[in-house]
Design a binder for these strands. Structure first.
Length: 1153
RNA sequence: GCCGAGGUGGUGGAAUCGGUAGACACGAGGGACUUAAAAUCCCUUGCUUUCGGGCGUGCGGGUUCAAUUCCCGCCCUCGGCACCA
């Protein structure tokens, strides 16, 4: 037998050991004669054994890394372990082991398995994320982010997996289920450490353009970030029924010089139980008329006064309070009856009669007044009668909304945003104040004194700190904001506007800073509240509560906004609770919504909602009031959590409006072509067609369409104002030309109108994002400890650098019970108290493992550095990663997180690169032989070790490269026969060594150079499958030839070396003394590829009929003559006329007959 | 629904700029060698045919001397997003 037979099991081990001994893959950091190339595969999770997926992930990119190395680059192709995380902990729990031990043993085992692939990893650079030397730097970065305001702690609704007993990031929840275990995810309020990834949303979006990534990967990231450009449109919110009194004295109703008596009064507006009428009084004695009034006596409440007055003065026995208007007004007048000048502080009370039960009034009351029911619409006119001398009127002064949620049992402070007449916000600057944090720019305000309300605190603080006297009623409540440092405690935040700063008595050591909102974020040492509002909650601050901004991408349809909708969680709903006359109904709805999980909310597409009665919004374009609704189809997290609803041009609004019978106003006419092509846009099923006023389409097409539509549908006719009648309502989302709006925008295109209308109503063009901040707290053991400790008051402090790594304790029972396992560590508790003092406690959550993997590619560069995470020089020379190989499942998680991480580091000046990965390739999936995903339960799992023992590692590597294009992430089934095909090829290469001759043929040389060219090009494009097929073609040809020279054979081995490193090394070393893998990759010689002759196909009328051998430079005439003489051509041309002769040199000849 | 990538023999897949569709491999069929099997080698292999040819790259149109490739309109598969205003 031939003892020189290809036997992989003999040679592979040998060369793996040789490479390791000779250290041929060790990579130097400072190489001057070669360009650095950083090829990276996503590092391994130490699950315990290597499957085919690992081979695909590591061995195929290894081919590329080897090719680059042979092509003259200084190539870094490292490997490490992503060693923290749930699976290790779960596996450890199941088997009662220490996750640390389990993980490190797995890593040892896997390192050996990885060596068997023949991958050219530089193992000296390896590490695991659970090494304290590694996570020291993870923690250090956390502390850098913390001190630079890139991390905040807040109480948020989190995704909680009941089965894994931990919080999940948004990205880890897939259609309401835990990405890992598939169990349902519930919402849970928890204090979380949040990384402010949203601060980089624009950069993450825009910088995608600078990356050489596949279009689809970029697109997926863009979708995830979800940037939308649109307009913020302000809508004033006001009380829809509002009564107030004039404040000035009438000419004959106030007597100069007489003393003034102060009185607290109520004015009662009495509503009929059935009819829309109010009860007005005609005073018999003085002939003055109006509403029921009464003085508030000492110790009496407004409600009591009002109800008593109604019963006594009118005789109606069952009034109920609808609403008490908070604002009292101060009227000065001469009270004729009492002969007094009065200053009356009116509280206006709206009551409704439950029924008309009536008792005879006392004689005295009957003598004073008669009562008349006046329709609501006529009340004002009635009160304006000539003989109405009483000084108050019902006036339409609508914007006195206030709030009732500024206080709860956890409210410990009040903060005040002060807005000047110029629209700037005023902060205090404590530059000169030695007692307080120096230089901090902060809100005015302070803590609540015992029994103080937040408003009282705010008034007091303003007086003490600023010398500013304000009334409680001047303070507009904005928000109840939990403290960053202690999410369970709140401060009420207020806004006061239009402040005059002339006569202030500033407290010593306090300076003032006036800033526009856009300047707040960047202002040095700005306190957290200020920053927060300048970014995330800007809309709250700017909105206050009598205005809300809606986000829309279709500002061109604003004239058609017939109502607005708030998300159930919208702050305004709570803030104006006291103004809502149907609060019980609203509250029921909110409770119902709260019960639904996110999943339910997504699944039940049936829209529900409830109108907020008692308030209305003003459409800023039309100036007309529109109703305000709350509905859960509006999401609090997107845009401003409020939308303007345009039923005629938005499908969701249309659905909702049809259900609740809200008006449709048609304001954008799509272009004629679009209507013609889009008959299905009629969604009402009513077959309505709108022919609107103001149409500017050219007549021809319009008439054509009308004719067509007339035949098919009922034509609605011309609708002047765009209001669609009931039964003919439909929705059209196309853009087009604006109609039924105003002179400024009618006939403008949608695009033009968006800008014009936005400007017109004082809105602004902005962007909004789907991306949300990244919560990294996990209630698990096996993760990087969060380097935070809490002082006895519960305020967080970072663990100083000298105590890093803040190590994971080992005395922990980590059985999951929903609380953090670290809370049970005595050692951690003790360590914290020893270092920081009695009463100090450690943070007990650990970090999401995506944090660990967000910067690991830096550590390979300098993994033994104990003073820096990596030295700056070294970073500069390697980063960004040139080509990053990984799985498609990381497109929106790891890839986005690590891009954020690098940008965050970059923003702090810690790294030079702004992006981690210049190139990225998502690999596909290897399926089982049956075409299904490999799984133990399906019994279709391929064990790579077993295959390797049969055919060798080189074959497995090559097969995986051959199975499909690596640059397109498809799913490729593992075909056991296909593996054999590769092995046959390698056998042929091996056997070719017996066919060596002194000289070879010109054809073979040409073929070799063609192959070199093709392999070059294909590897560059990562089309390894076609690179292999071209080598196969060459070997087939060489086999048929008379022989191959040693030099040619060597060149071929070099071509093949990246693919089959062991075999090529074996064959190479028979004639050489240094490794093939450190030789130069062959270059092709163009002159050897082309010979002067070429076979060209001849087409007749586009069909190939013959072939001809053509010499380069042959002229067309002689060529044409030669062709026409050919019998196989004549067969077709006989009796036909040649119309055209087309010759595309070295491509094709086409005869048209 | 929106966005993206695709759709080519029995299978995985080639065809890089509009120029011979199906490279390469698997499978299948036939043959050689062998006592036999394995291994190896050779031939055939898109469909169809009256052996001239005809038809073929998801479907229907179009542009072109020529279309898997470009354009228009559909269908289907996969991936991402999704009550996102």
């Amino acid at each position: 037998m031939n003892q020189n037979e290809y036997n992989p099991s003999d040679i592979e081990k040998k060369w793996q050991e040789y490479w390791q001994e000779h250290n041929i893959y060790a990579v130097e950091n400072n190489v001057t004669d070669k360009e650095n190339f950083y090829a990276l595969s996503e590092f391994a999770y130490p699950s315990g054994n290597l499957h085919v997926g690992h081979w695909y992930a590591f061995a195929v990119p290894d081919i590329y890394a080897r090719y680059k190395r042979m092509s003259g680059y200084n190539v870094l192709y490292p490997m490490g372990f992503d060693a923290f995380g749930l699976p290790a902990e779960n596996a450890a729990i199941k088997r009662g082991l220490d996750p640390r031990k389990w993980t490190y043993e797995n890593m040892d085992y896997m390192r050996n398995q990885l060596r068997s692939m023949g991958a050219s990893f530089d193992w000296s650079r390896s590490f695991a994320t659970c090494d304290p030397e590694y996570y020291k730097w993870t923690q250090w970065m956390f502390t850098q982010f913390y001190t630079n305001d890139l991390i905040e702690r807040s109480l948020i609704k989190t995704n909680w997996c009941e089965s894994c007993k931990t919080v999940l990031a948004n990205e880890q929840v897939v259609s309401g289920e835990c990405e890992r275990c598939g169990n349902g995810v519930i919402q849970k309020d928890m204090a979380q450490w949040m990384l402010k990834i949203t601060k980089f949303a624009d950069a993450l979006y825009d910088d995608l353009d600078t990356l050489d990534w596949d279009h689809s990967i970029k697109q997926a990231q863009r979708e995830w970030i979800g940037r939308k450009e649109g307009s913020l449109i302000p809508f004033k919110i006001q009380e829809s029924e509002m009564y107030d009194v004039n404040t000035g004295p009438g000419d004959d109703a106030f007597r100069q010089g007489e003393p003034i008596v102060d009185r607290d009064n109520v004015v009662v507006i009495i509503e009929h139980p059935e009819k829309d009428e109010f009860l007005c009084a005609k005073w018999k004695q003085v002939d003055w008329q109006g509403f029921v009034t009464g003085g508030i006596e000492q110790g009496q409440s407004i409600e009591e006064t009002a109800l008593t007055e109604v019963r006594e003065e009118t005789g109606y026995q069952n009034p109920e309070i609808v609403k008490i208007y908070n604002q009292s007004s101060h009227g000065l007048f001469w009270h004729v009856h009492k002969k007094q000048n009065r200053r009356a502080n009116y509280r206006i009370v709206h009551v409704r009669l439950k029924d008309l039960e009536h008792i005879e009034r006392r004689q005295e009351e009957q003598e004073i007044a008669d009562f008349l029911w006046i329709p609501r619409s006529e009340v004002n006119d009635f009160l304006k009668r000539e003989d109405m001398k009483y000084p108050w009127r019902v006036v339409n002064q609508k914007n006195n909304l206030t709030s009732q949620v500024e206080q709860n049992e956890n409210t410990i402070g009040a903060g005040i945003f002060i807005k000047t007449k110029e629209g700037k916000y005023v902060f205090q600057k404590r530059d000169n104040n030695p007692e307080r944090a120096k230089g901090i720019t902060a809100l005015f305000g302070g803590g609540l004194e015992p029994n103080e309300t937040t408003r009282q605190t705010a008034v007091r603080e303003l007086r003490e700190e600023l010398g500013l006297e304000v009334l409680e009623s001047d303070l507009k409540f904005i928000d109840l904001q939990n403290h960053f440092d202690n999410p369970k405690k709140n401060s009420a935040l207020f806004l006061i506007e239009g402040i005059n700063f002339e006569s202030l008595k500033l407290k010593e050591g306090v300076g003032l800073v006036e800033l526009f909102i856009d300047e707040i974020f960047d202002y040095p040492k700005m306190g957290k509240f200020g920053r927060l509002y300048a970014t995330k909650k800007r809309s709250l601050l700017e909105n206050s509560f009598f205005e809300t901004k809606v986000f829309t991408t279709r500002a061109d349809t604003l004239f058609g906004a017939t109502y607005i909708v708030l998300a159930p969680e919208h702050q305004i709903v709570q803030n104006i609770k006291s103004q809502i006359t149907n609060w019980n109904e609203v509250e029921d709805y909110l409770k119902e919504v709260e019960k639904k999980s996110d999943l339910d909310r997504q699944q039940s597409k049936e829209k529900t909602g409830v109108e907020l009665k008692g308030i209305e919004a003003i459409n800023p374009a039309t100036g007309k009031p529109v109703p305000v609704w709350v509905a859960d189809y509006v999401l609090v997290h997107f845009g401003t959590g409020a939308v303007m609803a345009v039923p005629a041009h938005d499908e969701r609004d249309a659905e909702f409006a049809l259900k609740y019978d809200l008006p449709f106003k048609f304001v954008v006419l799509p272009s004629a072509g679009e209507i013609g092509n889009s008959r299905p846009l009629i969604t009402s099923g009513e077959n309505a067609f709108i022919l609107a006023a103001g149409t500017t389409e050219q007549k021809g097409s319009q008439e054509h369409i009308n004719a067509e539509w007339n035949a098919m549908y009922d034509v609605l006719g011309i609708i002047e104002d765009g209001l669609l009648p009931v039964g003919k309502r439909f929705c059209c989302t196309f853009e087009g030309k604006v109609i039924n709006a105003s002179g400024d925008v009618n006939t403008k295109t949608s695009e033009e109108a968006r800008n014009i209308i936005t400007k017109m109503v004082g809105g602004e063009i902005t962007k909004t994002y789907r991306l949300r901040d990244w919560g990294i707290s996990r209630q698990r053991y096996w993760g990087t400890p969060i380097p935070i400790v809490y002082d006895p008051e519960g305020n967080p402090h970072v663990v100083p650098e000298e105590h890093l790594p803040w190590t994971l304790p080992d005395d922990v029972d980590f059985t999951p019970d929903g609380t953090a396992p670290l809370a049970r560590s005595e050692k951690l508790k003790k360590r914290t108290e020893e270092i920081f003092g009695t009463g100090w406690t450690p943070e007990v959550d650990t970090m999401d493992t995506f944090v660990d993997s967000s910067w690991y590619f830096y550590r390979y560069l300098d993994n033994n550095n104990s003073s820096e995470f990596v030295s700056k020089d070294i970073m500069q020379s390697w980063m960004p990663v040139d080509m990053y190989f990984g799985g498609a499942e990381h497109t929106t998680m790891h890839l986005l997180y690590s891009r954020f991480w690098v940008k965050a580091l970059h923003s702090l000046g810690l790294v030079p690169a702004n992006e981690p990965y210049q190139g990225r390739l998502n690999r596909g999936l290897i399926l089982g032989p049956d075409g299904a995903k490999m799984s133990k339960s399906k019994g279709n799992v391929i064990d790579p070790d077993e295959v390797v023992s049969h055919v060798g590692a080189d074959t497995v590597r090559m097969y995986l490269a051959f199975i499909g294009p690596f640059n397109e992430p498809g799913n490729y089934p593992w075909d056991p026969n296909g593996v054999v095909g590769i092995r046959r090829f390698l056998d042929k290469v091996w056997r070719l060594q017996d066919k060596k001759t002194e000289t070879s043929s010109e054809e073979l040389v040409s073929a070799l150079h063609q192959t070199i060219k093709k392999v070059h090009e294909d590897i560059d494009r990562l089309k390894l499958n076609t690179a292999i097929s071209s080598m196969m073609t060459f070997i087939n040809q060489a086999e048929k030839s008379d022989g191959i020279t040693q030099a040619e054979y060597d060149i071929f081995l070099q071509l093949l070396a990246p693919f089959a490193p062991h075999m090529c090394e074996e064959l190479w070393m028979q004639n050489h003394s240094t490794s093939i893998h450190i030789t130069d990759f062959p270059e092709y010689d163009e002159s050897k590829i082309s010979s002067g002759m070429k076979a060209l196909p001849i087409q007749i009328n586009g069909k190939v009929r013959a072939q001809i051998i053509v010499e380069e430079g042959e002229n067309n005439d002689s060529l044409q003559n030669r062709i026409l003489e050919m019998p196989e051509v004549q067969k077709w041309t006989e009796g036909k006329v040649i119309k055209k002769f087309i010759h595309v040199p070295s491509k094709i000849i086409n005869l048209v007959i």
